[in-house]
Write a protein that binds this DNA or RNA. Structure first.
Lengths: 100, 100
DNA sequence: TGCGCATATGCGCGCAAGCGCAAATACTGC
DNA sequence: GCAGTATTTGCGCTTGCGCGCATATGCGCA
């Protein structure tokens, strides 16, 4: 599913965009980390990750009791370019949390 | 308004994305042309163009009884890159009309 | 001034998206 | 097996978005 609308819709939500931002450097994060980092509730984060996953932007892998999400490695260059371009724009002051 | 979410939200809608596609080469189109080309009703197209305009992606200019829309020329390179990337992806079979 | 075309907008509706809560499922370690 | 942690998912609710309809507004022309 790499048509434009799917990707754009997946990215056009603050929590999801924040998650993509965190994952885009290639590092893995479990849901519990992500929810703390972006300040979202558990079920909320899980659902949003599901959307990103079904859009093909991230993949998940079970590791003991955790599910680790990470940027899809086999992403087409076009899609990667789109996400890169989106992340190059400033994030609105909304969802910002301790970025460190 | 060139934060990521504003732009992404503006693009994440079939009618709007179709309109951007038509306008992105720099040519002007009035609303009546756009509505025919993308197959949308009058008020619908007008509203969507308003969204694109307030996102800063297009500008309008009155020309007699028409309002001509066109791609914003003073767009930041980052935003332009984002839109370019979005248009580089295939459009889903949805909104497609006589593309010729 | 009146008519007709082009566009914008107020209004109300229906639907999809996002949310919290709670229960189900997955896995670990005792 | 049991308790505890992590994650997903069913459910119902609320809100925002897109839509059509009708109307207002802008503009040209007779």
């Amino acid at each position: 599913m790499s048509d434009a609308l799917t990707i754009l819709t997946a990215l056009a939500e603050p929590t999801r965009l924040a998650a993509v931002r965190l994952l885009w450097d290639g590092r893995e994060h479990c849901v519990c980390e992500l929810m703390r980092l972006v300040g979202a509730s558990q079920s909320r984060m899980s659902r949003h990750m599901g959307v990103l996953k079904s859009a093909g932007l991230v993949t998940d892998r079970r590791d003991a009791q955790w599910v680790r999400y990470r940027r899809t490695r086999t992403l087409s260059p076009e899609v990667a370019a789109l996400v890169d371009a989106a992340l190059a724009l400033p994030a609105p002051a909304a969802q910002e949390r301790s970025a460190a």
